[in-house]
């Protein structure tokens, strides 16, 4: 317990000091926080519950559009802001910007949660591949639909309100970093506390054998929906922040970016080790560093390098980094290994 406390304190201090130690990397660090949130929440479905969802991007994109729309709509006519070739330019004063952002983020978190409940009710009855394909469709459909809605800019995209001038150039980076770091901490605390309750055991039971779980009297549907709603809450929040950070929302390339973000969140969780608390966090961090490195040093080849990375992950780390460590050093994970039994098994092989 004590050691744990030291670890968390160290990470927290590092997180709080990071933008000042690496002032040039604020944007990358903010994105890292968002990636961790996405990977960690995906892990609730993909890792703990055994439902491979490609649809979490739906909540992320929804949060992004909602946050920006509220932020603009609270003070100015939204239709005029997004009107293509809009001749009018509105400027948010600092209080307007921050109030709008605050309300926007609340909406960005709450609405996707409700949407997740509604969609979940209708599709969480599907299992396995059927669920995966269905959720894949959700993200694609959302991208195409939002690309046709004029009030949020349609194909023109949606420029989010520019950060107000509050003196320092660094303020924007710092604001978004702390916002995303705070969201990350919130997500971590929430997920960690969930994982220490019976709820996690139920999710695991669904993963291991859903029929048996039902036979044991667990209302699996209810828990599946709640699990998805929790993910949606944080995905929406992450989306809202990301929209402000990027500054420009495009329906298929930024918001409902299933091809990138939607796949990355799965990849990161698998890389780190799904079904573990730390796995997605480690996976997202390594993935982000790899990706940024590829972009800098293998210009034009980054996706080839990324493809190789994915192949390596699947072949050598099918259980992810945490799973690999766990197999290699089981005693460090608090598992007791019977040396005789292990040897016997090795000989059998």
């Amino acid at each position: 317990m004590n050691k744990n406390f030291i670890l968390y304190a160290a990470i927290l201090i590092f997180g709080l000091a990071a933008p000042f130690i690496f002032p040039a990397f604020k944007v990358q660090l903010s994105i890292l926080c968002v990636l961790i949130v996405l990977a960690t929440t995906w892990n609730i479905q993909g890792g703990e519950m055994g439902y491979n969802s490609f649809g979490n991007i739906l909540f992320y994109g929804l949060g992004m559009y909602l946050c920006a729309s509220v932020q603009v709509g609270m003070f100015f006519p939204l239709a005029e802001w997004t009107e293509s070739g809009g001749e009018k330019t509105f400027v948010h004063t600092p209080p307007q910007f921050f109030q709008g952002m605050a309300v926007g983020l609340v909406v960005a978190a709450v609405v996707p949660t409700i949407v997740a409940g509604l969609i979940g009710y209708s599709i969480l009855g599907l299992r396995g591949h059927y669920f995966a394909i269905c959720t894949l469709g959700l993200g694609v459909a959302a991208g195409e639909i939002s690309g046709g809605i004029e009030i949020i800019g349609a194909g023109q995209g949606f420029t989010t309100p520019p950060f107000p001038n509050v003196g320092s150039l660094e303020a924007r980076g710092e604001f978004f970093y702390f916002l995303s770091f705070f969201t990350l901490v919130l997500t971590f605390i929430a997920v960690r506390s969930i994982y220490s309750t019976r709820f996690k055991l139920i999710l695991n039971a669904i993963r291991d054998n859903e029929d048996k779980a039902e036979a044991m009297g667990i209302e699996t549907m209810k828990y599946k929906i709640i699990g998805w709603m929790i993910s949606a809450f944080f995905c929406g929040l992450a989306g809202g922040i990301m929209g402000g950070l990027v500054g420009y929302i495009d329906s298929t390339d930024v918001a409902f970016d299933g091809r990138e973000m939607g796949v990355f969140m799965v990849l990161m969780a698998i890389l780190g080790g799904k079904g573990t608390l730390w796995g997605p966090i480690i996976g997202a961090t390594i993935f982000h560093i790899f990706k940024e490195g590829f972009w800098t040093f293998f210009l034009g080849w980054q996706y080839v390098a990324l493809g190789v990375l994915i192949v390596v992950i699947v072949i050598y780390f099918p259980e992810g980094i945490m799973g690999w460590l766990r197999e290699k050093y089981p005693e460090r994970f608090g598992e007791v290994v019977d040396e005789k039994d292990r040897k016997a098994q090795v000989e059998l092989k």
Partner: peptide
């Protein structure tokens, strides 16, 4: 100095930030 934005606005904004601040 060139970077590849992958035809993606999110990436482009990030790279602009990187070109300027890093």
């Amino acid at each position: 100095i060139y970077y590849d934005d992958e035809s993606n606005p999110k990436r482009a904004a990030q790279l602009a930030e990187r070109l300027i601040s890093q």
